[in-house]
Design a binder for these strands. Structure first.
Length: 620
RNA sequence: GGGGGGUUAGUUCAGCUGGUUAGAACGCUGGCCUGUCACGCCAGAGGUCACGGGUUCAAGUCCCGUACCCCUCGCCA
């Protein structure tokens, strides 16, 4: 009967389509039973598909057979109905003390209902482990285990459909602008450096492994060498690193590379794309060009290279102030830190956000969790006294005055300090800043208030960073980034100073999340060789690691550069959801497992033998 | 690898200072109900208190360990 129904009776509308203008039409709807309200006589059912909800009504005298069937309907049964669209009846309003139209303003289809003439059941459903609705409160673990049910919920359906829209708009944008969508291998050769790779054993080549691409970086540069001067791809990438709220082991990038361009050209292309995406999804016009900030400035003021500019709570670096007074300042630990090439930073919490002592103690616990020794503080009393500030007990008044001047702190404000190893001080203060902003209600715990889209380009970072362990200079990002022309002299032997080499690298940041990053590449083999030399990598080393790319650059490589945007992060931010997992249909847990399929799982001994692989579980 | 939070009914949670038969809401099952819309009313079923040890006359509750989930530092060129 069900199969007969579906072959004879074709769907005429989705469950979100019908309006008052359709009244009188005979329609066929298919969908899931969201909800049954059985009045003994009349039965109301909200029928759901991905487009919305439509109220359908079964009356005993209208279609007795369908009504009898509907008495047995339960949540999530899949049914089909044929019926007539009609206006909803009148309803007695106690509030207004008169008859009012029984419309439901919460539904797009709330002006109408479909009175059923014929109904069929395609499938019954077990009672689901959680309610399939907008307002489910089931936790993520149970939802991930039944992801196919979670994906049936309107919220998730909307974000997944938005993602589809982002994909379509992205392709449209690049194609319209003359880009070619080209594909690159997932399985490639392992290249050292960067993220840990997932490895795939080669059956045909015993003992050898493919690496899953952590990005198409090298291939897209080779496309430039080959002359495909505008490339894009929406592509999966794989990185075997620890997961976070905004990191999954497999994720999607919008990968872009262009020839004959300078940094500004790439910015314009990406700003155009983001403008289009925000217009498409939110109907708003993002102001462009985006703000730009030097990497060094971002580190100094915010402690990282992805500052959230929706609020202030900026850092102040106090090294100069502390150094000016030296050991006379009376704050020994800070002076020691400055002498040991450490960093001293302060953050002012304005008086209006008054924090209790126990709240500040909680902040101290929070920063200790990141390895801080403590959280030095000074509460400025209304008379200007420094209270709760043991560190400053012997501090010179002039030093205190200088700190106030540098930070702009006023009576009633709270000063928080970190000092020590620069990278650690930056990280702790950067996280403290965001943590405080959430706690003080300056930004929401997650998501984005409408209109608060703070885009930013972070530009001009140093090319190298010093590797304390290896005692060498290493590429801060990758070795194929072009140094700024005015910095090239610091690669020459007579004025060698890697710390002063800045480069054409850029990150695009939105509300504290890095949504993309790229660089202008090194296409000149001579400069490339100097860069390797600065890192202590010989030509032979470089050749053995990146030989094919270095070769390619010698055969007439055009100047080129590119960027990759994190599609998942973009989707997560644009949909204002809580986590990347909300915009990935089948995401993995923090340990990289799939709670639905049970991946990763064990395999047969024979499968391992075929691959010449032996499994050695960790000793307990 | 480190720090923090969590795990009690199908779901979300409460369960105090260790003390009789572990509760609530929603959901589920049955009944009643012709204008509801997260319908309403009545009744009922539903528990390996994550797992393993330990302390105790007595453990959901205290201690130790393990597993899993979440946030985070490290890591992510």
């Amino acid at each position: 009967m069900a199969t007969e129904f579906i072959s004879k009776t074709k769907r005429t509308h989705s469950c979100g389509a019908l309006r008052a203008s359709d009244i009188g039409k005979e329609v066929v709807l298919f969908g899931w039973v969201q909800n049954r309200r059985d009045h003994g006589g009349l039965i109301f059912i909200d029928l759901r598909d991905r487009d919305g909800l439509t109220q359908i009504v079964f009356g005993p005298e209208l279609a007795a057979e369908a009504h009898t069937l509907a008495e047995r309907f339960r949540s999530e049964w899949v049914i089909g109905i044929r019926g007539t669209v009609r206006s909803r009846g009148m309803q007695w309003s106690k509030k207004e003390n008169k008859e009012v139209p029984a419309t439901n303003p919460n539904l797009a289809t709330g002006e109408i209902e479909v009175v059923v003439l014929e109904a069929t059941v395609f499938n019954k459903a077990q009672t689901p482990p959680f309610e399939i609705s907008e307002h489910t409160s089931a936790n993520e673990e149970i939802r991930l285990a039944h992801r196919y049910l979670d994906l049936r919920r309107p919220t998730l359906q909307r974000t997944i459909m938005t993602r589809s829209k982002l994909n379509a708009a992205t392709r449209q944008y690049f194609v319209d602008n003359g880009f070619l969508e080209l594909e690159t291998p997932f399985m490639g050769r392992y290249t050292p450096g960067g993220a840990r790779n997932f490895l795939v054993p080669s059956r045909l080549n015993p003992g050898n492994f493919y690496a899953l691409a952590e990005s198409p970086q090298l291939y897209k540069q080779l496309f430039m060498v080959a002359g495909f001067d505008k490339y894009f791809q929406i592509v999966k990438c794989f990185r075997d690193e620890d997961l976070r709220l905004d990191r999954q082991p497999e994720f999607t990038q919008i990968d872009v590379e262009m020839s004959f361009v300078a940094q500004d050209d790439i910015f314009a292309v990406i700003e155009g794309l983001l403008k289009k995406l925000w217009k498409e999804v939110h109907g708003i016009d993002l102001p462009t060009p985006f703000r730009r900030m030097d990497f060094d400035e971002s580190m100094a003021r915010y402690g990282n290279d992805k500052p959230d500019l929706r609020f202030a709570l900026e850092h102040t670096q106090l090294n100069d102030v502390i150094a000016k007074f030296g050991s006379d300042g009376g704050v020994g630990p800070m002076w020691d830190s400055v002498q040991q090439k450490g960093l001293v930073k302060a953050l002012v919490v304005p008086a209006k956000h008054a924090l209790s002592r126990s709240e500040i103690d909680k902040l101290e616990e929070y920063v200790k969790g990141m390895g801080a020794g403590g959280l030095a503080r000074a509460k400025l009393a209304d008379n200007g006294d420094w209270t709760q500030a043991p560190l400053f007990k012997n501090a010179k008044p002039e030093l205190k005055a200088a700190i106030l001047e540098a930070t702009g702190a006023k009576n009633g404000d709270l000063l928080l300090f970190q000092f020590g190893k620069p990278s650690q001080v930056h990280t702790i203060m950067a996280n403290l800043r965001v943590h405080l902003a959430k706690k003080l209600g300056l930004i929401p715990e997650f998501g984005t208030k409408d209109g608060q889209w703070n885009f930013l380009w972070v530009v001009n970072p140093p090319l190298f960073e010093y590797d304390e362990d290896a005692k060498t200079w290493a590429a801060a990002h990758h070795a194929f980034t072009r140094p700024m022309d005015e910095c090239l002299k610091y690669l020459e032997p007579e004025s060698f100073d890697p710390a002063k080499v800045y480069c054409y690298r850029y990150d695009v940041v939105l509300n504290g999340f890095e949504i993309g990053g790229g660089s202008i590449r090194l296409h000149d083999p001579e400069v490339q060789s100097k860069v390797f030399k600065a890192m202590g990598i010989s030509d032979e080393d470089a050749r053995s690691k990146f030989g094919f790319l270095l070769d390619a650059l010698k055969y007439g490589a055009p100047p080129h550069g590119g960027i990759a945007l994190g599609m998942d992060r973009l989707a997560f931010l644009i949909t204002q959801t809580e986590s990347l997992r909300d915009v990935i249909p089948f995401p993995k847990t923090q340990k990289g497992t799939d709670l639905m399929t049970g991946a990763p799982g064990e395999v047969d001994e024979k499968q391992l033998r075929d691959l010449y692989v032996k499994s050695v579980p960790p000793a307990k």
